[in-house]
Simulated scan of single mutants.
Amino acid sequence: MATYHSGETAVQERAGLTTEAGYALGGIGATVPPVAREFLAEQPLIVLGGADLTGRIWATQMTGAPGFIRVPDPRTVTIDALPLPEDPLADILAPGSRPRIGMIAIEPATRRRMRINGRARREGDVLHVDLDQVIANCPKYLQKRDHVEIRPGGDDAALPRTVVGGTELTPAQQRTVREADTFFVATASDQGDADASHRGGNPGFVQVLSPSLLRWPDYIGNAMFLTLGNLLVNPAAGILVPDWETGSTLHLSGTARTVWDPEEIARVPGAQRLVEFTVEAVREITAASPLRWSSPAYSRFNPPAG
């Protein structure tokens, strides 16, 4: 039976949404239903979150032609891909390792998404994930993007992949964050159980307060508070900001906290709470993905950016 951990229940109580969280618990299972199996098989992208060998949390992505994500049985997801060698999570997936990872698959064209969490095991170039949680998610704040194009060995083959690291955001990276309408956040409980989730809004919904401090609104959601619950007991977090047009990825790792101050919250349209993220490590990878997407149609649920 699905349950919430102490951090999740504490946030639910503080938000006054324990009843709603109880209803939402029905959306957490341990097996992949048939309709979700079909959904996963159609996706060319899955986002992964977890801790690197030093314990730092990162979010990243893996891509492939539709069909590269398979469900051989209801308790297992198999992915015919691995993170890039330059990826911040590449080292945790060595043969013989059993890291706990969180994943989220999204379909921008239909605004569908689902989260799947468990333990990974690698066999050759294939990743198997033994599932602990399968979570249905609502489509709010997910921007619609169409016409996915996969370019294996195409234009990207002539582009050298570059990696830029650092401990704070450059001016160009700050612009990337300010202009983003979507990012993914990875967290973990105090027991190390990882989770990856989506955050979306109109461009500008993520504020860059300094080269090492970001802030975004926490909008009305499913009342589970899986991300904020993890942050309460373990502030480590990672962010992935994808560039939907170029295939570059911006990975950030650091710590995050929830802001409950009513005056601060009231200044941000639609915010129920705020999250502040302190950047401690940056990795930007160009030519990281062969996928290309159309310009977005913004979700009608997006509040105005503050």
Rank of each mutant, 00 (worst) to 15 (best):
V208M: 08
V208S: 04
T187I: 00
G153E: 08
T187P: 08
L214P: 07
F183W: 06
T170K: 02
P152T: 02
S197F: 04
T162D: 09
Y219D: 06
G192S: 06
P160W: 01
L209C: 08
D195E: 06
D193T: 11
A196L: 15
L159K: 14
G166I: 12
E179M: 09
S197A: 13
D193R: 13
P217Y: 10
D155G: 15
D181T: 07
L159Y: 00
T187S: 15
T182L: 12
R215A: 14
G154K: 06
T162F: 03
E168Q: 11
F183R: 03
G166N: 03
L159D: 07
P203I: 08
L214E: 13
H198G: 05
N202A: 14
H198P: 07
A186C: 07
G192A: 05
D181R: 00
W216Q: 11
A172F: 01
A158E: 13
V164L: 13
N202Y: 09
G192D: 04
F205A: 12
F184E: 08
P217R: 12
G201M: 03
H198Y: 14
D155N: 10
G201P: 04
S210P: 08
R178H: 08
D155R: 14
D190A: 15
D181G: 04
G200F: 03
P171H: 11
G192E: 05
F184K: 01
Y219P: 06
T176E: 11
D156M: 04
T167P: 00
D155A: 14
G204I: 06
D218A: 12
T162Q: 13
F205I: 07
R178D: 04
W216I: 10
G192K: 09
V163M: 12
R175W: 04
L214I: 12
V206G: 03
P203V: 07
L214V: 14
L169I: 13
P211K: 05
G200R: 05
V206N: 07
S189T: 15
T170G: 04
F205M: 10
A157R: 14
G192I: 01
H198K: 07
T170F: 01
Q191D: 14
T182I: 04
G201C: 06
P211C: 13
L213M: 14
S212Y: 08
T187A: 06
R178V: 04
E179D: 13
F183Q: 02
G192M: 05
T170C: 00
D190Y: 00
E179F: 02
D155K: 13
A158D: 15
Q191Y: 06
R178G: 07
E168N: 03
D195P: 01
T182M: 05
V163D: 03
E168V: 02
R151E: 11
R215H: 09
A196F: 00
T170Y: 03
D218W: 01
P217E: 09
Q174H: 02
A194G: 07
Q207E: 15
G165F: 05
V206F: 07
